[in-house]
Nucleic acid binder design. Structure first.
Length: 424
DNA sequence: TCTGGGGTCCTAGGACCC
DNA sequence: TCTGGGGTCCTAGGACCC
């Protein structure tokens, strides 16, 4: 068997790069993309990073800086980013089907079967192809383990001499990677490791497996092995069913009105159930939560959970149950800031379990399935909200703000870019 | 006034069983 | 009532990722 070789393809400043595909005039300018409620920065161009705007920077604290330096702001446009992400996935899949789409802007490829002689040249070719065909700059790291591929792609991003591609072949790159930049080391572990004298990836690689496990659990042991070139994390094969689905939002503005919140719950439940059906799953448990603002005194949160003896994907049923729970929690004196619906403990729609008494109302179940299929069919054909639960219309005032959203150039017929051709 | 959203996995401890 | 070991299941919380 061939030695494992992984490539990580990581899109640079992905959301910003997506905006720039349709706004090439923004090349070289500071750009930020704000989270769904225009609350904080979730992507920054290199120029914006150079201005000292950190990830997650609350927009209201940086307004002045944005003005002073002409930082261009966008509300997040996830439909656009999702579409561009799919195009890159398609391109990569044409190179090899052995791909793991790790997130919206990162994919791992297993290169061990590809018979590549010069990995650096191969990486540069792929990078150029993505840039030309989709318009997104990427960084590529190639190494015998995923952790090292990740580390290599970070170096490739930071060091311009590498031209976006690093084939990992030298432990000097470990010494140059500080401990908090290692995949799997977060803000909690960083101070603990530093206290042990472990301040870069090289130090971490030198820890004994026992010590690593002591400090960080089984994950730590695997991390150390991976840094030493021993692959512990295989390529995750697709088709792994999801274990939970949630839809949560911070409201456009805080609200005390029950019908506003119920309309939000209706929307979340509908979205979550649609996702659940697309996964071919039914749920046994559903929950909701409500919170006040974390940034105001007297922060509180509430949550409730319900159990279904027969697994379901019916938003009508789930919403009805959740709204009952909601009415028990609700107080008109409170000002609510955020809410969410979550589903978990799934059963495959193909192999329905009966309840404790061995009873499933099959005719009812079939009728529900047919009804939901009809709704999905209509909405796929005519648009997301063509058929919806009436409660969604009670008051849509919960919806987050997105004052600065770019057009959905590639996913909405009404927002296609317009090309102007001039004649002389 | 204004601070995102969606996930996974591991572990420790309690309840309960024999 | 007390003694001891071994096992499973569930849950809450912690840690991480993008």
């Amino acid at each position: 068997m061939n030695q494992p070789v992984f490539a990580l393809i990581d899109c640079n400043n992905f959301f910003v790069s997506c905006e720039r595909v349709f706004r090439p005039d923004l090349e070289g300018k500071p750009v930020v993309v704000l989270s769904s409620n225009d609350g904080c920065a979730v992507a920054r161009s290199n120029e914006a990073k150079a201005l000292g705007i950190p990830m997650g920077a609350p927009a209201f604290k940086y307004r002045q800086l944005f003005r002073d330096h002409g930082v261009v702001q966008f509300s997040a446009n996830f439909e656009l980013y999702g579409d561009i992400s799919k195009r890159i996935t398609m391109l990569l899949t044409s190179i090899t089907p052995r791909i793991e789409v790790y997130s919206v802007d990162e994919s791992f490829l297993d290169l061990s079967q590809l018979n590549i002689h010069d990995f650096t040249a191969w990486g540069k070719m792929v990078r150029q192809k993505i840039l030309e065909w989709v318009g997104i700059p990427v960084s590529i790291g190639i190494a015998p383990t995923k952790t090292l591929a990740k580390l290599a792609s970070e170096r490739a991003k930071k060091d311009p001499e590498l031209e976006g591609v690093l084939f990992y072949n030298d432990t000097k790159y470990l010494e140059r990677t500080s401990i908090q930049d290692v995949w799997g080391v977060g803000w909690r572990l960083t101070p603990r490791l530093k206290a042990e004298g472990v301040s870069n990836a090289w130090h971490l690689a030198c820890l004994s497996p026992q010590r690593a496990q002591q400090l960080m659990g089984i994950h730590g042991r695997q991390m150390v092995a991976e840094l030493n070139g021993v692959s512990c994390y295989p390529l995750a094969r697709e088709g792994k069913p999801q274990k939970s689905i949630s839809r949560t939002r911070t409201f456009g503005e805080d609200t005390s009105e029950a019908n506003v919140i119920e309309s939000a719950l209706a929307n979340f439940t509908t979205q979550a159930c649609y996702r659940l059906r697309r996964e071919g799953q039914l749920t046994r448990r559903a929950g909701l939560f409500l919170t006040t603002s974390r940034f105001k005194p007297g922060y509180r949160n509430w949550s409730r959970e319900v159990h279904f003896s027969t697994p379901t994907a019916d938003p009508g049923l789930i919403l009805h149950t959740l709204v009952e729970q909601f009415s028990q929690l609700y107080s008109p004196q409170q000002s609510y800031h955020r809410a969410g619906v979550f589903l978990y403990d799934f059963a495959s729609a193909g192999q329905l379990q009966t309840d404790l008494l061995g009873y499933v109302d099959t005719p009812l179940f079939d009728k529900t399935t047919a009804r939901l299929q009809a709704i999905d069919h209509v909405n796929n054909r005519w648009g997301k909200y063509t058929l919806r639960i009436a409660a969604e219309d009670l008051a849509r005032r919960w919806e987050p703000k997105h004052r600065l959203r770019s057009p959905r150039y590639v996913s909405n017929w009404d927002e296609l870019p317009v090309a102007k051709i001039g004649y002389r």
